[in-house]
């Protein structure tokens, strides 16, 4: 149980902590997260009472999104990241599509050029974070236990812990799962979906939510295409049925083919985030 916001996040663990996240750092995601909804009572009394004289029940109309709390935390994360000029990217895919491999290569290639940081989401193990840290880039692991996705509240805590530099790109590797992460906004600037060519070209039709929510599709492991009967054109056609404007970049995180386009995309996304923004006090360019 978190002592600051009173959250009990079940099995979630931030790396380096015992159980729960019982820490004392400042909470910046409190703003607006707790009480924001339109509420009114009506129909007190007889109309809805079951058994008069036994217990008085009443109706409360609340009209609230089930994910309202997550969305409030996500808004707080988003504005905090925007203020610091941090480009946060939520990396989503099926298990094993190559998120960690892609990240490792990206970090090695770009860390001399701009500040980078990584949040790793996994149900168990800290293996992915260790692999990331071997590149020299700062990384924090969140273990979700049985949870099949990251949520905005966990990411808020991870930001307190990790403190990514102003103007950095923050990569958030979500739990490998094409269903649940689509529903949970983390406060990221964009969602990057990685699909590998070993998965079958009809994935967009099977998981339309994720393909609908994504801002960029990376088609990974194209080095394996000669050995497969994966139809790239058909896959792109399916993806664009769900998300007509989505940019698609075929690449191989193993051989490096196509990676330069991904880097261009990253540089442009970061540039457009920084252009015309007011730097924080004490921030160096």
């Amino acid at each position: 149980m978190c002592t600051v916001c009173g959250c009990g996040e079940g099995e979630t663990r931030l790396e380096g902590e015992g159980k729960g996240h019982d820490h004392e750092h400042a909470h910046s995601h409190g703003e607006g997260a707790h009480h924001r909804h339109d509420t009114h009572h009506y129909g007190r009394g007889p109309a809805h009472a079951h058994a008069p004289g036994v217990s008085q029940t009443r109706m409360v109309r609340i009209e609230q999104d089930i994910l309202a709390r997550n969305d409030a935390y996500a808004r707080a994360n988003r504005s905090r990241l925007a203020r610091a000029g941090i480009l946060a990217l939520n990396l989503v895919s099926s298990p094993g599509s190559g998120k960690t491999t892609l990240l490792t290569r990206t970090l090695r290639d770009l860390q001399g050029e701009m500040p980078l940081a990584v949040i790793e989401g996994d149900q168990e193990t800290v293996n992915d974070a260790e692999q990331i840290r071997a590149t020299g880039v700062q990384a924090l692991q969140i273990n979700t236990g049985k949870g099949c996705h990251l949520d905005a509240h966990m990411v808020g805590h991870a930001l307190d812990e990790l403190r990514p530099k102003a103007q950095s790109i923050l990569f958030i590797e979500n739990v490998g799962n094409l269903v649940c992460p689509a529903a949970f906004d983390l406060g990221e600037a964009q969602k990057v979906l990685i699909l590998s060519v070993t998965e079958g070209e009809d994935k967009p039709l099977k998981y339309p939510h994720m393909f609908h929510a994504a801002d960029l599709l990376l088609l990974n492991k194209i080095d394996l295409l000669p050995h497969l009967d994966f139809d790239v054109a058909r896959c792109e056609e399916y993806a664009r049925r769900i998300n007509p404007e989505i940019p698609i970049l075929p690449l191989s995180a193993r051989t490096g083919e196509g990676m330069e386009s991904w880097y261009r995309w990253l540089r442009l996304a970061r540039e457009s985030r920084l252009l015309g923004r007011t730097p924080l006090a004490g921030e160096t360019a």
Binding site: H48, S55, Q56, T57, R58, M59, V60, R61, I62, E63, Q64, D65, I66, L67, R240, R241, I242, P244
Partner: peptide
């Protein structure tokens, strides 16, 4: 055509409660 804008059917809301 496949270029559609979803205008309803993606909600997940609590409408009301009966409480005591």
């Amino acid at each position: 055509g496949y270029r559609l804008e979803v205008t309803g059917g993606d909600e997940m809301r609590i409408k009301e409660l009966e409480v005591e």
